[in-house]
Design a protein around this nucleic acid. Structure first.
Lengths: 332, 332
DNA sequence: CTGTTAGCGCTTTCAG
DNA sequence: CTGAAAGCGCTAACAG
């Protein structure tokens, strides 16, 4: 392993000088610099990240805390974060989070041992307290969600407005009994989508029927089970609004298996617009979230926060209801 | 920031002693240990990861190189790797790889600057040379793929056997003109699936019709375009075998949009068995890969390699053809 | 059983 | 413009 000392010795200069040419800091005579550069090249020298980290007290690693990489929407956001971070010399440490205490502890460990320079949360989850505590210790950004009473930089769509778009669209088609399948309640997005659901009913002067509010684990299988159960119980509804496309895929199938045609008998709307949405059968009407943009903005905002610069937040990016083939006029 | 020196001072011992109790190394008198532990607790001391890294020359970070986190199958593998790694005190640094020179360079940088302890490749891609070079420098595992002429620990299903299963199933249903949509050619899995395709034809005494061999980017949209084009050109086939479920989703839709019913007119088979496969319409017949198991085994194997222990490889895990509703007897 | 000490590889102040 | 030296936080060899 060749170190800065080897380079210094071979070039006949001190390590300080090598460091200067490495970092373009201080002043180095042109010919000295050339000599050092030549040796660096010849020895194929690369400065040790650990040495630098210890000295500078930063790792150039930011941890991305996600609820489920397996969800293509999350994957897309993480993907763009990785590219954006890398292009700025940072790396992404991936961390799955499912709201358990052990993970809380592990997260705090990462922070305490200074293994990471900062955090980006893709989920604010139920454990807001824990997250707030972490956010106090390191630069932190919230992506995909927004929490009113928490003063932290965030980038997301307006989840409530998006839900209202969906609800108004559905109500415009004559639907009044809309089944909501949301993710677990701790999730802010789920909360916002529920909130939007209620507001829409209020605005339309319609009562919210609590039995139409269903929760499911974030898998198609769970949504399938939930919806199958609802149909079997004879629950009365003409449309289903799923808090994510992942859920919608299970919902679509459950309805079809129960002999209900989509959209003829029941309309279905998803959320996220994952890459599969337009190719489902029927093509899924859903809320498009600019995943790539969210990822890139989150990284940019994190960098900004890490440099201690002031910035405006929350940042709200544009969503869009993509109308495809899974909704029709209510027949009842 | 509290350091080991603070702890030592407060406990009235030397840093060596603190280090000993921290690492359970050497011998420490019970009461001394208790005193040190108390101070650690009181000061809420956590050893600096950077200090340890520099000293021990390891980061406890392993880089996972993936072709596309956005693919749910890949997501699932990465997910299980993250959990498995974490439970052993390691973290996952995510790195998207698309076969470009810049990324090759960045990967080498990570290795040269000793930012990571090792590598796990989810793709062997075209750039085998580059990967082999990296593998020489750090403990490396290949997951999901197997390369005959490359002596490296790997864990994967038997891609050729799996393809043969698919082909025999399809041929058993009377299909002789089977369209193959594979990912980009550099990909080993794609190569194996193509190889299996050819072997099956040979065994059946059927000629391989080159025009039935199609390539597509790994997105449903690309598969959709490819297949739509094939149908429009009047290409004659009764079944489509997709090298991944992601492709199959696009294929399914393309056929339906062209007025071809699946499976009545055309049969479709996917690969991977992502969580959406059973919920598609029709439910997709596909090859199940044990994603979780692959991820866990890969981490275990990496650890083994990192400790310099000998191990048997390649490890072949079980695949399974999951027959669902997207295939039927050929009508021509 | 415990302390002293020498680094791991790097950056940066301070002198010159 | 350059070098000497201190020190980031830690572990481990060595001495006692």
């Amino acid at each position: 392993m060749t170190t800065i000392h080897d380079v210094a010795r071979h070039a006949g200069v001190s390590v300080a000088t090598v460091s200067r040419v490495l970092n373009n800091s201080g002043t180095v005579r042109t010919d000295t610099r050339a000599r050092v550069l030549a040796v660096i090249d010849q020895l194929d020298y690369h400065p040790s990240a650990m040495g630098q980290s210890l000295r500078l007290n930063r790792t150039r690693i930011v941890m991305v805390v996600v609820p489920e990489v397996t969800n293509p929407f999350v994957g897309e956001v993480v993907y763009s974060m990785e590219l954006a971070a890398r292009s700025r010399g940072y790396s992404i440490l991936l961390h799955e989070y499912h709201g358990d205490q052990l993970t809380d502890l592990q997260l705090q460990q990462y922070v305490s041992t200074r293994r990471i320079d900062g955090l980006i949360f893709l989920t604010a989850e139920a454990r807001e307290k824990q997250f707030q505590q972490l956010a106090q210790q390191l630069p932190t950004i919230l992506a995909c969600e927004y929490v009113d009473h928490w003063d932290i930089p965030s980038v997301s769509i307006d989840n409530i407005a998006a839900t209202l778009d969906v609800m108004r669209y559905l109500m415009g088609l004559g639907h009044t009994r809309i089944l909501l399948i949301s993710g677990s309640a701790g999730n802010v997005s789920a909360r916002d989508r529920l909130r939007g659901y209620r507001i829409a009913h209020e605005q339309a002067g319609l009562p919210v029927c609590e039995e139409l509010l269903q929760e499911a684990e974030p898998t198609p299988a769970a949504a399938y089970a939930t919806l199958t159960g609802a149909v079997e119980r004879g629950l009365d509804f003409t449309a289903v609004f799923c808090a994510s496309d992942v859920l919608a895929i299970g919902a679509l199938r459950a309805l079809q298996d129960k002999g209900l045609a989509v959209p003829r008998d029941v309309s279905v709307v998803g959320f996220d617009d994952i890459m599969f949405a337009p190719f489902l059968n029927p093509a899924l009407t859903t809320v498009h979230q600019p995943a790539r943009e969210i990822g890139e903005r989150a990284i940019a905002m994190w960098l900004c926060a890490a440099e201690g610069k002031a910035q405006d937040y929350p940042v709200t990016v544009r969503h869009e209801l993509r109308i495809r083939d899974s909704c029709a006029v209510a027949r009842r």
